[in-house]
Design a protein around this nucleic acid. Structure first.
Length: 277
DNA sequence: GTGGCCCTGTGA
DNA sequence: TCACAGGGCCAC
């Protein structure tokens, strides 16, 4: 479900709630989901304070006061809510953290994820480096420089759709925003990445940035599962140009949007063969 | 690179 | 009943 704009929206909602909060207790941590490399998950987390919440790509990193990092990925169907401790539990709740905050009500941080594609992890600095260092997770798609972006694309023969989805190349782009960015840049998803001219690479960089900035401003795209921390849906689904619009007329040339399943195996690709070359 | 797999829910 | 879904990993 969530790509960069959705995760960023969640982070913006969570930051004021969790920063400086103390994890007073871990009422529930599902063994299916919560893993730790530094000791038993719940015990290791209890008593820690959350100093900062940062996002890179689709990953959330909660920096703790002892240098460890609580890692959260929403997968396809993950949600976080800040709930009153007595509030009824949603189905598929895999993690509950009791957060005590100076001068503010105690709340529960709850993570739910029906499909369980999400990830909940507690790591120390060295484990974090090994798992999320530059070799595993690329620069964030909102802040990557044009030059870095262009040279990374030039280094791969894969098609543009596959390259944009590769989190090591650039972090945060998923199926929706890959298609939307390629449409905005007027580039075919089937184009080998290393065939872009410098001008085209710049165009794609600008398109990715513009699409993501707009989507963040719209609080992300809500199609089925994703909602913000406050329970409100995003609005970017109303502004999609190609994703989910198979057979509908292209907003630019009126020819039907094409749906391909062969561009990247296992995933739908929507694009306009007329406008994207 | 490709295909399969991890899971549940939903809509055709 | 089947196909499909904002993701990512692992074995061929």
């Amino acid at each position: 479900m969530p790509e960069l704009p959705e995760v960023e929206t969640v982070v913006r909602g969570l930051r004021p709630e969790v920063t400086s909060a103390a994890i007073a207790a871990v009422p529930w941590a599902s063994e299916l989901m919560a893993e730790s490399v530094v000791g038993p998950f719940a015990a290791s987390l209890t008593g820690r304070r959350i100093d900062a919440l940062v996002r890179q790509g689709k990953w959330m990193f909660y920096r703790l006061d002892n240098g460890w990092i609580f890692v959260l990925h929403l997968g396809m169907t993950g949600r976080v809510q800040i709930a009153e401790p007595a509030a009824e539990l949603l189905p598929h709740t895999h993690l509950r953290l009791l957060l005590e905050r100076p001068g503010r009500p105690t709340v529960e941080f709850r993570f739910t994820d029906p499909r369980r594609f999400g990830e909940v992890l507690l790591v120390d600095e060295s484990a974090w480096q090994a798992r999320f260092g530059p070799a595993q997770l690329g620069p964030d798609a909102l802040t990557i420089s044009r030059g870095d972006f262009a040279s990374r694309l030039a280094a791969t023969r894969r098609n543009l759709k596959a390259a944009l989805l590769d989190q090591r190349l650039v972090a945060g782009i998923g199926n929706i925003y890959a298609d939307e960015s390629l449409f905005a840049a007027r580039l075919a998803p089937t184009r080998p990445a290393n065939t872009l001219t410098p001008r085209e690479a710049s165009r794609l960089h600008r398109a990715v940035n513009a699409v993501l900035v707009d989507a963040v401003a719209a609080n992300g795209t809500s199609i089925r599962d994703y909602i913000t921390v406050t329970g409100v849906p995003g609005e970017f689904q109303e502004r999609l140009r190609v994703y989910g619009r198979a057979d509908q007329p292209c907003t630019k040339c009126r020819k039907p949007i094409r749906l391909d399943r062969g561009v990247v195996t296992g995933r739908a690709t929507c694009w306009c063969p007329q406008c994207q070359k």
